[in-house]
Design a protein around this nucleic acid. Structure first.
Length: 428
RNA sequence: GGAGGGAUCGCAUAGUCUGGCCUAGUGCGCACGCCUGGAAAGCGUGUAGACGGUGUAAGUCGUCUCGAGGGUUCGAAUCCCUCUCCCUCCGCCA
């Protein structure tokens, strides 16, 4: 959610922000709705003030005088209730529109419609062209008997897979290494709840927009009936990490406050039928290490670069060629003002594909979650929140397998991970 | 799943039975001041948030919030209903 002051003080800037995201929202009519709701609210509050003032006098009266006063105040109370209902209805009408308002994109975010309009800002490492036939991760994984997508589908359906043997050890080596790297930078490791309430989902901006991407939890009666528990499977640790400080006022001295959360992530992947169907590139369930930072508004743009640096540090150590893209306005998502994706080179697809994503959501999430800090003057101000992928285990494994495969079918392990895995290669 | 007890202004508590004197009292903590060579003690003052009106501003005025939402009433921390969370016990359980 964004600041209504933008609508009142600078509607042109708001309209411009919407144009940059190719959204057609009628700003003037929203502005007049806002004025109307405040006008009715003030009228209701004035009636309420009079009711309270005269209601207090009743206790001092008696007899006919008291009865007359009660009748008079009852009329005011009725008027107030009518006005209150009207004011509440207008508020609800306005809020329903306002929560859909995306975060204005940062000036440096490129204007564009789809991920094809993202701007590459740097390319690191050279894809090597090996002198043998390159296999994709599923072929490698099946040959080594460490990825089993077929049995995953048997038990759970499409977009599920088993990791086995060395792939599992590799996953936990990556996770442990990632935690060591980031706690070395002062990030606090967190194992958060992955079932979250609707509030937390709304607060991070996943609702009301992306309801069809989220699994709901409840009791199924086996005959198609379903009773919701009001809980949802988080698609990323970003959600419980953002919710961690909801309704809190932090001390400025404690900022930036950085966390690295480990969680399994669940995604329905609605609308992706037929896309990335092979292997474990796009699955309903994967594990991820996610960075999350709470900062002051002054710190947030530096922090965005800082989180990107942490991602680079990690991908560099994995010895994988990659590029960094500045995500365009059409591909940003409502909460983010700016987003960097790191796209690793995937020899099996002969393409760069996303393995991390790093967003500055400025005060968009903080306003919905009511996360503030007390500044030097003692005023409470909204924090800025940022998130960035540290290690998305599934896709990182793919990149590692495909980039480090050898002619003999084995896969080399980058030096940084060898101590964690206890070997320098997987396979023959 | 069953039975019971709770949730009050940072913390602890009073207030709820019996609606208006609650503009929510008190203690602790915290901040500032007085006192002191300095400190402690003592004394004094202050000590939530949100929204909105007004004002260049400091400010000032109003409304809302006693876990959340609804209801009764001229009037609700207090009475009624629903929900959430916490605690104790029983059952089940990794």
């Amino acid at each position: 959610m964004i600041d209504v002051a933008l609508l009142r003080d600078n509607p042109e800037a708001l309209a411009d922000s919407l144009r940059r995201r190719f959204l057609d929202i009628d700003v003037p009519s929203l502005a007049s709705l806002d004025e109307e709701r405040r006008r009715v609210r003030v009228a209701a509050e004035d009636l309420r003030a009079e009711q309270r003032r005269r209601g207090k006098e009743i206790a001092t009266l008696s007899g006919d005088e008291k009865q007359e006063a009660i009748a008079a105040v009852a009329r005011i109370a009725n008027d107030y209730k009518d006005k209150l209902v009207a004011a509440d209805a207008l508020d609800a009408e306005f809020e329903a529109e306002w929560v859909k308002m995306p975060n204005p994109a940062h000036a440096s975010a490129p204007v564009g419609h789809t991920d094809e309009d993202n701007i590459e800002i740097e390319r690191i490492g050279e894809p090597v062209a090996p002198d043998f036939e390159v296999l994709d991760h599923l072929a490698i994984g099946e040959a080594l008997d460490i990825i089993d997508a077929e049995r995953g589908a048997k038990v759970s359906g499409s977009r599920f897979a088993y990791l086995k043997g060395a792939a599992v050890l590799y996953e936990f080596a990556l996770v442990r290494w990632g935690l060591d790297v980031l706690s070395g930078h002062g990030f606090t490791p967190v194992a958060p709840p992955i079932l979250v309430r609707e509030d937390a989902l709304f607060g991070t901006g996943f609702l009301p927009g992306a309801r069809d991407q989220v699994y709901a939890v409840g009791v199924a009666d086996g005959e198609g009936g379903f009773e919701s528990d009001g809980l949802y499977l988080a698609g990323t640790a970003e959600i419980p990490l953002a919710g961690l400080h909801m309704d809190e006022i932090l001390e400025e001295a404690d900022l930036p406050r950085r966390y690295v959360g480990f969680s399994t992530c669940f995604r329905r992947e609605a609308g992706t039928y037929g896309k990335d169907t092979r292997g474990i590139f796009r699955v309903h369930q994967f594990d991820k290490l996610e960075m999350f930072a709470y900062v002051t508004p002054d710190q947030s743009w530096d922090e965005h670069e800082y989180l990107l640096e942490r991602e680079r540090e990690i991908v560099d150590a994995l010895e994988i060629p990659y590029r960094i893209v500045n995500v365009c306005t059409g591909d940003l998502g409502d909460p983010a003002a700016k987003k960097y994706d790191i796209e690793a080179w995937f020899p099996g697809q002969n393409a760069y594909r996303e393995i991390t994503s790093c967003s500055n959501t400025t005060d968009f999430q903080a306003r919905r979650l009511r996360i503030r800090y007390r500044d030097e003057q003692g005023d409470n101000r909204l924090v800025h929140t940022l998130n960035g992928t540290a290690i998305a285990v599934g896709r990182t494994l793919i990149a590692l397998l495909e980039n480090h495969q050898q002619a003999d079918g084995s896969v080399l392990i980058p030096a940084a991970l060898q101590p964690y895995l206890g070997t320098d290669r997987i396979g023959p």
